[in-house]
Structure formats: structure tokens, C-alpha cells
Design a protein around this nucleic acid. Structure first.
Lengths: 220, 220
DNA sequence: ATTACTAGTAAGCGAGTAT
DNA sequence: TATACTCGCTTACTAGTAA
């Protein structure tokens, strides 16, 4: 979707072209867009070709209606602005399911962690973590987590070793509740570790390489 | 604001660049925008020149932060999408204050109307209407009113003549409460007639030609 | 009045490349 | 590795104008 077509579509929607046909000449539209009549005309032809609007050309003016397809495009755009300004209590990641080395299982079975998970998150995690690799550029979003209070899992010791503290955030993966686990002593990683009371790989029939959406929620 | 720069700014904001500086290379941004590295670089330079972002160029990558100005631009855009999809209980018009021919005063002093205004709107209108001329293209928004229930003022008769029914919508002009009056028996007009308990020309020190914003509210 | 084609011009694009 | 310049090519723009 070309940016200038999106702008045009938005302009039409603002004039009410989503629910009703609006009457507008290419010159009037041109003024709204601060462009020439010819450009406005061309935009309308392009939007029509793409199926984003329907037009009824009369002798004078034209009646324009934004189609369902056009409305969907606008709604997607709206959702992005909502994510920026309204849905600031969450961050959305898109990532790829990958296999870990089994460490997830080792850690999620340590009773020192399990007790705290149960107490602070309200569930006993299924042994193992579901690892999701996010794109490098999305690591910037992880920084947003820094500004928010996490559910802190304290470090503890066994006879043999010390297990470090962990920060958790409630999260959803493909709609299923769980939490994201961020070890305190590790650098930024491109892997998100998701714990859940269920065996998600089975329940969601996930396999390596599948693309999933993770929503991380902040505490207020 | 060029549409493609707006898109770029939005993309940066989605990655969290409003609150934090984000680390992103021009190549990574290019991938997000589905453009070349050179184009992404050019966009960043342009946004920087316009004061929409600040950049810290390191040896590798660059740290980018959306400025207050950039955020304002995005918020304006967000507001427009809100008007399309969320604030569907209102329509916003921009118009120019104009003088009528005094008919407004004649009508708003008819007790047949006044009684109904008081009963149905909750106020006795100041004699006269504040007339606001809207741009031709905005008449399309008036059509949206058709889909909503109006506050109906019934027609009535005096010895001499019949006064026709009127549709009203609660409205605000420059923040002041009042109502818009749409005569039933008239075609679409480019003049909005605003009634209010106060003498708005004085209270808002309005004179002909002043640009005002009118918000019309629908009943649920 | 309109819409929208043609043609010439301006702006935007990315490959190559300097830094 | 980066960023961002130049340059040739493509796309987008508007003036003029036909329908």
C-alpha cells in the first residue's frame, strides 16, 4: 500500500465515505490533499483499481464509497496508532518458534523457581520453556520493558550452585496465558522464553519455524 | 508532511522510539519499510532535518529518538483515525463565522420554538443564531447526521402562519454548549445554525470571517 | 462543470561506492 | 561492518487540454 494512497483513503474516510457514499470532485479532493486536480484524479483511479473504493461517475462530481477492503486497511493503520498511544500497557512481538538446548526444562524444574512461579504467577509451569526468536530490530521493544515493574523471582541456592534472579512479565502467546522469563544476569537476547501451565508445543501444535505473536503485559 | 516520512516516523514509534532511543541501522529500517538501505538513510536524514527525530551516529548503527514535534505529528494522525473509528458519536466541522439576514433572530424568538427548545434541549436560546459557513466538501459529513436520531422540534401554527419542524443536535462551538438547528424543509446548506443560551458573538468575541470548530454529538 | 489523457518536468529511487 | 553521497533510471507530478 503506497503511503499517499493511504492518506487519500483516510481523507475520504474522514469525510464520511465509510458508511455513506460521499459526493466529491477530484478538484475538491485535491484541495484536501494539497495536490493538483490531476493527481487527485489519479489517486482515485488507483484506489478504485485496488478495490479500496467504489465510484459512481456522474456528469458532475462522483460518488465515492470506501469498500470493506479499504476499511480494513485503515483499521490496520488505526491499530498501529493505538499500539503507539493507547495500548501502552503491552508490547507485541512477532517471532519464530525455535528449540532450546533443554536448559529451559532444567530450570523450570528447580523447586526454588517453581515455588516462586506458583506464588507470584499463580501457576506451576510445564517443564521447559517455549523459545521464540524475535527479529533483531524488535529487541528495541524489549527495552520498553525496562521502564516497567516486573514480577521478580528471587535468586536461591542449592547445595551445588546458585540460581540467579529472574524478571517475569505476564504474556500471551497465540491467546494462551503464561509469562515471559528474563534472566537478570544476561544480556539482551533475541530469544524470548515463555512459560505456561500447559505444554504449548502440543496444545497449539507448534513446531520449529512457526511464526507466533507474543503479547507482553506490563503491570500498572 | 510527506506521507512516506509519516510512515517512517510511525515505524520508529512502533519500535519504541518515542520513550527510548532505539538502536537501528538504516538497513534494518529499510527492511521494515520494504525499501533500500539508501532510501531508509535518506528518510532518516529528512526526518532529522525537520526536527522530528534526533540521531546519535555511532560507528555502528545509530540511536534514534522521536522528538516532541515528531510525537505531535503522530498524535494528530492518531486523532484522525480515532475520529474515523472511535469517536463515531460526533462529527467535527471547521467553518467560518458569517452574518445571517436576521431570520435566525425572528425564529428563535417564536415562543412555539422557545418552549420546545427549553423542554428538549434544556435551555432558552439567546435570540438569533450563530451562523457558520462550512466548506462545500464538508457537506458530506452532514449526511452522517441522517443516520442518527435527532432531537426533533415539532412544527406549530400561529394565527398567521405555520412554522416548520426542525431537527437539532447537541453541539459545541469553541467549547461552548449549544445545539445545531437543521430545518426539516430545506435542502442541504453550507451554513450551520448554532443556538446557545449565551450571546456567543460577544462571549467568544467572534466576528465575521473567524474560523471556528463545531463538534456535533449524536444521541446513542 | 466535470474526469482523466498526454507530455514534459520534478521528485524519488536504488546501485555503486567513498568514507 | 556502518552512513550517505553521486548518478542514471523510474515514478510521480502538474500544465494543457480533449471528451
Amino acid at each position: 500500500m503506497k503511503p499517499y494512497l493511504l492518506q487519500t483513503l483516510k481523507e475520504l474516510a474522514l469525510l464520511g465515505a465509510i458508511k455513506n457514499r460521499i459526493e466529491i470532485s477530484s478538484l475538491e479532493l485535491a484541495k484536501q490533499l494539497e495536490a493538483s486536480q490531476q493527481t487527485a484524479s489519479r489517486y482515485l483511479v488507483e484506489l478504485d483499481k485496488k478495490g479500496m473504493i467504489t465510484r459512481e461517475l456522474g456528469i458532475k462530481k462522483q460518488l465515492i464509497l470506501v469498500t470493506t477492503l479499504g476499511e480494513q486497511v485503515l483499521q490496520e493503520e488505526h491499530l498501529q496508532y493505538q499500539q503507539i498511544f493507547e495500548l501502552t500497557d503491552r508490547v507485541i512481538f512477532k517471532g519464530k518458534v525455535v528449540s532450546g538446548l533443554g536448559e529451559g526444562r532444567y530450570y523450570t524444574e528447580q523447586s526454588g523457581y517453581v515455588k516462586q512461579f506458583e506464588e507470584k504467577l499463580g501457576f506451576v509451569p510445564f517443564p521447559g520453556t517455549l523459545n521464540v526468536e524475535i527479529e533483531h530490530v524488535e529487541r528495541n521493544k524489549l527495552r520498553l520493558l525496562k521502564d516497567h515493574r516486573a514480577i521478580n523471582i528471587e535468586e536461591f541456592k542449592t547445595k551445588n550452585r546458585t540460581f540467579g534472579g529472574v524478571r517475569c512479565f505476564r504474556a500471551k502467546i497465540a491467546g494462551m496465558d503464561g509469562a515471559i522469563v528474563l534472566p537478570l544476569r544476561s544480556h539482551y537476547s533475541n530469544i524470548l522464553e515463555f512459560i505456561s501451565p500447559d505444554f504449548l508445543r502440543e496444545k497449539l501444535s507448534l513446531k520449529d519455524g512457526d511464526i507466533v505473536k507474543i503479547v507482553i503485559y506490563f503491570k500498572k
